[in-house]
Design a protein around this nucleic acid. Structure first.
Lengths: 153, 153
DNA sequence: TTGAAATTGATAAGCCGTCTCAAGATGATA
DNA sequence: TATCATCTTGAGACGGCTTATCAATTTCAA
């Protein structure tokens, strides 16, 4: 009984997304597989991943899990509204949408230093712009490039 | 005399960026070539391009201009601060940074539509954040990803 | 003008992500 | 629970976009 509680508590974080996935699968006549569950729980633990990083992470739990399956599953998550693909550099980042505390970046073009920041007011204005254009924002990216105090001398 | 004036007027729009490029080349012991000039003037006429589109555009002026040269040159422009690379879908878009009043982007993750916008209030807040962190902004990039009205159905 | 050094064009190579397909898993149904 | 149509998987082939290679050419400082 105590064990049951502990288990259900540990699972509670993933339950919401698991339900979203189940609903999506049902609606599209798809099936819930061991791999999809495995990938989902691992995915939810992180803010953003690439297929490659998940491939290596999961190799320990299931050495036969194929890279193609991970790509397929992450794309499935996007369709289900659990993940969001973002192209960064040459790779695709899959962002955990439900993860909060998104931060923006201040990047020094001199020394490469990256300072993270968060500004509610800016976020609010972004929503405003999106709404005005008929968009519903899923995620965003704001990078300010400039020179930090030290590099200006 | 009249002709000279006409010419210098036609060039005036590209002069600023050409100078930026020249300075960058000088600083890195690189050379100013016919191809680099050609690609720069064509690039400055547009808001954003892919290497492929420039390849076809320029094929008329110089049928022997190679695709690799265009990629190399556009990347050079990024290093010189004239262009900015943005990855969308499988391709790379090269944005003209100096283009009138710098636009930010609202990007539909469903159909890829890009809506450009400008918001002084957001820019002001960006300055504020930068100053607070001891930075002086040179440029920035703001991309909002979401679903447009049509793709939400 | 000369020559060291950078650039070019053509194409090979590389990377990332998707497609293919035979073998295996899933789950609705009886 | 056994059956079986359907979906999924894993491995590798494939394809699109970008970069690397290299001999021939161009640039530019002296």
């Amino acid at each position: 009984m105590g064990l049951f509680h502990a288990d259900s508590h540990a699972m509670s974080k993933t339950l919401k997304e698991m339900d979203v996935l189940r609903q999506h699968l049902a609606k599209h006549q798809l099936k819930l597989t061991r791999q999809r569950e495995l990938i989902l729980t691992a995915f939810l633990r992180q803010e953003h991943v690439t297929a490659e990083t998940m491939y290596h992470q999961l190799a320990k739990k299931d050495p036969h899990l194929g890279l193609a399956t991970i790509y397929r599953t992450l794309n499935l998550f996007c369709e289900a509204g659990i993940a969001q693909a973002r192209h960064f550099g040459t790779q695709t980042q899959y962002d955990n949408i439900s993860h909060k505390g998104h931060h923006d970046h201040l990047i020094c073009t001199g020394c490469g230093t990256i300072v993270e920041f968060e500004n509610c007011e800016i976020e609010r204005l972004q929503e405003e712009v999106a709404t005005k254009n008929g968009f519903v924002i899923q995620t965003h990216r704001l990078e300010l490039y400039g020179l930090c105090a030290r590099c200006r001398h």
